[in-house]
Each structure stands twice: as structure tokens, then as C-alpha cells.
Design a binder for these strands. Structure first.
Lengths: 68, 68
DNA sequence: TCTGTATGTAAAGTAGACTTTACGTAAAGC
DNA sequence: GCTTTACGTAAAGTCTACTTTACATACAGA
């Protein structure tokens, strides 16, 4: 699962910590998602999309290789 | 997190087992999601949406009360 | 040089998504 | 009555999303 979290965050000029606060998650979660260490839950994905005022599909791109 | 999984499944005239096979998950997962026992992972949500040829937002509706 | 801001790694713990197995029930058809 | 199909519950196990804490690095500015 690829994502454009970092691009969107930069676009809004937010630090990882600011974004974490807005999303009510830890900064570690932001780092891990940006670095592709894991894919967020559906709920967090919804929150991320609405924070950037876009659709989930605009931020997250599922891979062929994507496991369930 | 509300969802319209059952509605879409009925619309396509699929049993829970058929849908589970298409999505490559267990029938238990389908039951649990339909019954609202848990919300699927982002990857599974993507698969569900593409199976019904709609967007994630068409199937899943985040609640106000939604925890992360 | 010291301080603050931003980013990153590592490790251990908790909660929940998902699996497998097994069993229960109700309806439909022979 | 028996079998098949569809739906549901329960319980125990695995994996991973997410947390907290602590430490490291690099850069900017006074």
C-alpha cells in the first residue's frame, strides 16, 4: 500500500507532530505510515482524507502485492 | 463505522461464502463486518469497494463516535 | 556554543482485525 | 425424514496497527 501522506503534509506545511495532533494519533504512527511500515486502519484513513479534504483514494494506492 | 456491505452483497446476489471467496477472506470476516463487530482493514476496504465497483466512501460511513 | 524544531530508529506493550474449527438453526427440495 | 444451502454464534490463536518512552541526528537562529 503506497501513500502520499508526506506530500499532502508538506503541501499543508505541517510537521509530523502537528498532523499527529490533528489526527489524534501518535507521531510514531505518522512516521510509520509515511515510511510505509504499515498501512493505517480504515478509520484513520478516513480521518487523514478528511483532514486533507480529499478522498481516501487520493492519498492511498493499494499495491498488486497487497496482502490482506 | 457503518457499512452497506450486506446491501451490496444482496444487490449482486452473492452468499456470504461467495463474497468471502472473491475477497479471499474467511466467511467469519464477512459476517463480522456485516454485523458491525469490527471495521475492516484499509486493504480489505479497497478490495470490497473494487469488487462492487464503487468507492470506499460508498460502502463505509465513518461515525462521529468513531474511535481510532 | 547552546537551544529549539523537525525527523528518525528501537523496543515493549495493548487492542483489534482476521483465521480456523466447531456447532446451531431455519428454509427448500427431494 | 433427510440433505443441502445460507446464515449465525463462540472461542482460541496469530498478526499488525497503534501507543509510549527513550534516544540520536541535523539544521537554524540567538
Amino acid at each position: 500500500m503506497e501513500n502520499k501522506l508526506k506530500e499532502f503534509r508538506k503541501k499543508f506545511h505541517w510537521s509530523q507532530e502537528e498532523l499527529a495532533n490533528k489526527l489524534e494519533v501518535s507521531r510514531q504512527s505518522i512516521i510509520s505510515i509515511e515510511k510505509g511500515k504499515y498501512t493505517p486502519s480504515l478509520l484513520l484513513a478516513f480521518k487523514i482524507a478528511s483532514t486533507f479534504d480529499v478522498k481516501i483514494e487520493d492519498v492511498f494506492i493499494p499495491n498488486n502485492e497487497g496482502r490482506i
